[in-house]
Amino acid sequence: MNTEKLSAHPMAIRGVIPQGSRAPHRPATAPPSAAPRRAHELRLMWRNTRMVVLSVLTAALYAAVLVPFKVVPLIPGVTELRPGNAIPVVCSFLFGPAAAWGSAIGNMIGDFFGGVGPGDVFGFFANLAYGYIPYKVWTIVAAPDQSPVALTPGTLARYVLAALAASMLCADLVGWGDNLLALRPFWVLGNIIIMNNMVAAIVLAPLLLAAIYPRVRRAHLLFTDLMPEIEASARPRRLVGFAMLLGGEVTAWLAGNLVSAGYWRPALVPAAFNVAPYTRAVALTVSPAIVIAIIGMLLL
């Protein structure tokens, strides 16, 4: 709690706060310790107890709903749709950074109950991105204070862009990671993940948001309400980040697909790597694009 904020407090203006008893506007959940002034919101959120709890609940919900809610086979035997895949997107709009960590942890727990799937470290960061990017991109492409509920065709397109930006980096990260470990070809995993996430985000998430968003706002549990101290970076910086994110992830996705399927043999890659099944070629080509996308994400 800083003092200059208190003086601007509405209750202070109304003169309700007597001397000696200052009611902070926001719950004094943050330890008063001196922390760096402008920490990234992914770090800042851990100081607020309610945000910690929201990340826990996102994680527990994600893990709990992923498993028992019956899967809908999309391509029988290859991939299946789970309603749980909508949770990171929905929570992203509600709980912001808490949803990002929650999705990452929730995915890990889901793996724990089912036996850790290989490449879990990548799954952790992929789901972090999947929960983090939607609300960040949304606040760039949509009007300020535009709620993600009651979408018009115009805002729907922006919503889809936000969801796609998130799904694609998520897919890139898992595809890249599993390729790095030479577990699964990029073209298999990368595309399945994008498709699964997008179907859940477009078909299911808007319905859930419409039902839940207004209620969360009324309960003052939107992250913007809980942590007004989170300030967005300057717009130009965010736009650069957005451009890097989109450029990086699309490049990574295209390169990953083309190289792993053998349609493109980049000249820069040592010839020894440029033989089927191209796992090392994929890793080499995709890595720079992924790094750019991640830097872009953190600049959002």
């Binding site: 109304r14 309700v16 000696g20 008893s21 009611a23 902070p24 719950p27």
Partner: peptide, 18 residues
């Protein structure tokens, strides 16, 4: 009033200290 948000007035003393 530190966790629950609202208008508070009055004095609370616990174990002899405000």
């Amino acid at each position: 009033p530190a966790f629950e948000d609202g208008d508070f007035s009055g004095r609370v003393t616990v174990a002899g200290a405000s």
